[in-house]
Design a protein around this nucleic acid. Structure first.
Lengths: 262, 262
DNA sequence: CACGCGTACTCGTATAGACGAGTGGGCAAG
DNA sequence: CTTGCCCACTCGTCTATACGAGTACGCGTG
């Protein structure tokens, strides 16, 4: 195994009170930031760093685990540790639910993805009636049971979003909303046909680390947070007619809103 | 050292192909989720878990480090590992920049915090002219130099947000906007007085893991992402008159938007 | 040429031990 | 009673070692 090119990474400062594994992480992080290691490029192997710094393997692994936690690098078993490429992001504009878009038939997701030149997919469709959680019930105005529509969105084969829509049974039962395919314009178009003219939406946004289940369904790398968006749709009578709970891979999204200054 | 109460945590499954440290993390996570360990409560010490499961200390520490990465627990040197309390969150409504709020004098942050019964603070105020980054320049319409206003917001002593406003020099230089205290209603009120009647705002939202510098200024615990919000203010002539770059501790915020269905 | 196998290199998991440093309680000296 | 010290317990850091398992590549065989 050949030694590291000199100058690529510095030396440790034994007088520093900064832990060795942090110093190593700092140096690697800086090298990445400066572009000495480019996106997708392989970092020196654990063994090489052990030799270079003269520390034990666990110490090097500790350094890597810091960088992984920051979402800067990812390890591939049998291959090495690589600089994580920043994937191109998808923008969700705040007017994506405007009526004019709805009238064109295709879903917002498909339209946006096509425009960006990506290949969109929707899978794990599940539509069923279930008991409302306390939170959903409160948002929908004290309903006990709801129709839940679950689906996962993929872009070029990569899962990017998992969403569940909840609708009061008295609205959705027996309509096309309860079918796997809600038809052109999606459930919002159906709701309007049913006489629930939409007035406005409320969106709540949080960011947090994913649960293990979310890591699995969204195939998230370590160090990638999720954006949790809860949208409530209100009709012109002020009634909440739908709650949509969406969990997005944060590295795949930029949300974009336009607000009046009035 | 007394053994763990039986039944609190289960046993390992040696036949499972799930790594031991992951099984331990799973059991602890489940116990937390079920409320067997409450917010702020101390988990069993590393030594107790070593005894309970019959594994080495590094294995237990690995488990803890998973949970730390998920933001579920935090360790305190000399004391133990504790379930992280979910701090009360600050809600940011999308109409917080409405003109009617601006006319009352106090800044939005102070008003909201007072209403919530918390003690708000603003510090590390810095106002200076500087060279615009490429991104800021593009957003402001190709300006070279800008006025930058930096400040950090704290709630009950805890830093929750770090924000920088950028304004074109031809607008801000020599005005009260260039003073540390921009006066009642903040810089938006001053901008309108200067003839830049505000028309609308654009907000871009991302979530990601913090840089080490952000961890420091916001005193972030491990496993807490940041929300990165970039707001651009446009006047009625369509000119971008301000860009505000905000980094928020994600565990302290819920953003809330209201969108018309038109 | 095509296939299969071995081998070297990679990261993943786990053990055992050592020392350091922060915290808190008890105990002894004043 | 108060003060100060010691000690037990906690997590933090680091070393050394071992074996497992995924990957890539070259070489030999058919």
């Amino acid at each position: 195994m050949s030694p590291l090119p000199s100058g690529l990474l510095g030396d440790l400062d034994p007088t520093s009170d900064r832990a060795v594994f942090r110093q190593i992480a700092d140096q690697l992080r800086e090298a990445i930031d400066r572009g000495r290691f480019k996106e997708g490029e392989k970092l020196p192997s654990e063994a090489e760093l052990v030799d270079h710094y003269g520390v034990s393997r666990m110490t090097v692994r500790n350094s890597f685990s810091i960088l992984q936690g920051e979402g800067l690098v990812h390890a591939e078993h049998g291959k090495g540790v690589f600089v994580r490429p920043r994937p191109p992001v998808r923008r969700l504009a705040s007017d994506r639910f405007a009526r004019r878009h709805r009238e064109q038939g295709k879903s917002a997701f498909i339209v946006e993805a096509d425009a960006a030149g990506s290949h969109p997919q929707v899978d794990s469709l599940e539509v069923k009636e279930e008991k409302a959680t306390q939170d959903i019930s409160a948002r929908l105005g004290s309903v006990r049971r709801v129709l839940a529509r679950r689906r996962r969105y993929l872009l070029d084969g990569r899962p990017v979003e998992f969403a569940t829509s909840y609708l009061p049974l008295d609205i959705a039962r027996g309509t096309q909303i309860a079918e796997p395919n809600p038809g052109p314009g999606g459930i919002y178009a159906r709701l309007e046909e049913l006489g629930h003219r939409l007035d406005h939406f409320e969106e709540e946004i949080r960011a947090r680390m994913p649960s293990p289940a979310e890591v699995k369904t969204l195939r998230l790398a370590s160090g990638v947070p999720v954006i949790h968006l809860i949208r409530t749709a209100f009709d012109t009578e002020g009634r909440a007619v739908e709650v949509c709970d969406t969990v997005m891979a944060a590295d795949a999204y930029v949300l974009s809103y336009q607000l009046p200054a009035t």
